[in-house]
């Protein structure tokens, strides 16, 4: 007998007391979101929670975005920046920093040489201060937001901002590789002292971009 059949057989015998038609529905009486906020307040909460977990938050509009990105790269002293394949051209239009494309053949060692990475995101969750990447072409492969030490993530606000975890899961596609990021990496393994930045990017900057230019 295969181990598969062995284990499934054990499970069925172990559950001899359970009626096979016993289908109790799970009570989902918990909240879909906590509190009532309008769109602007939800974005404010996101900014607050991101900052609380030591992400650096910036706000701008569409027209101001290239300038902000250029400034952040300069302030970080970056000489190279990774760009996922479908990053909007104009985002990097104001910076002179060398643009590096992520090629299928790029080795982790090559990525380790790059100073910064700029990406979009799939969505952001206000209540938890989380950004979620789903590997879409404007975000790129998971590795590019992992190996460089400086990640700039652009969130379109308010349309990419959801209030809560339940509302986020509804909008995400499980077949895509997902990375949920809530602040830069951290450890409390040494006497519970929080130390930011162990293996992922040690600096996470989130740029909240409001609608169309004029706002």
């Amino acid at each position: 007998m295969s181990s598969r059949d062995l284990i499934l057989g054990r499970v069925r015998r172990a559950l001899a007391d359970v009626r096979r038609d016993d289908e109790q529905a799970v009570p989902r009486t918990y909240l879909r979101e906590h509190g009532e906020r309008n769109a602007a307040e939800t974005v404010d909460l996101l900014a607050e929670n991101l900052a609380d977990y030591r992400a650096i938050v910036h706000r701008t509009d569409t027209a101001g975005l290239p300038g902000v990105i250029a400034e952040l790269l300069a302030a970080h002293g970056s000489s190279s920046v990774l760009a996922p394949p479908a990053l909007p051209e104009e985002w990097l239009s104001a910076t002179e920093v060398t643009r590096v494309a992520d090629r299928a053949g790029s080795t982790p060692h090559e990525l380790d040489e790059v100073d910064s990475v700029v990406t979009a995101c799939a969505l952001a969750i206000a209540e938890t201060g989380t950004i979620v990447l789903d590997g879409s072409p404007d975000q790129g492969r998971r590795r590019i937001t992992l190996v460089p030490d400086h990640h700039i993530c652009v969130v379109r606000a308010p349309d990419q901002v959801v209030p809560s975890v339940p509302l986020a899961l509804e909008r995400l596609d499980p077949t895509r590789p997902l990375t949920w990021i809530s602040g830069p990496s951290a450890t409390s393994d040494i006497e519970l002292d929080r130390v930011e930045g162990v293996h992922g990017p040690r600096t996470l900057e989130v740029v909240l971009v409001s609608g169309d230019g004029g706002e």
Binding site: N49, Y53, E127, L178, W180, S182
Partner: peptide
């Protein structure tokens, strides 16, 4: 004791 841990990975 965090609202969310720094990283969660999901893959299919």
């Amino acid at each position: 004791a965090e609202r969310m841990n720094p990283y969660t990975s999901m893959w299919t």
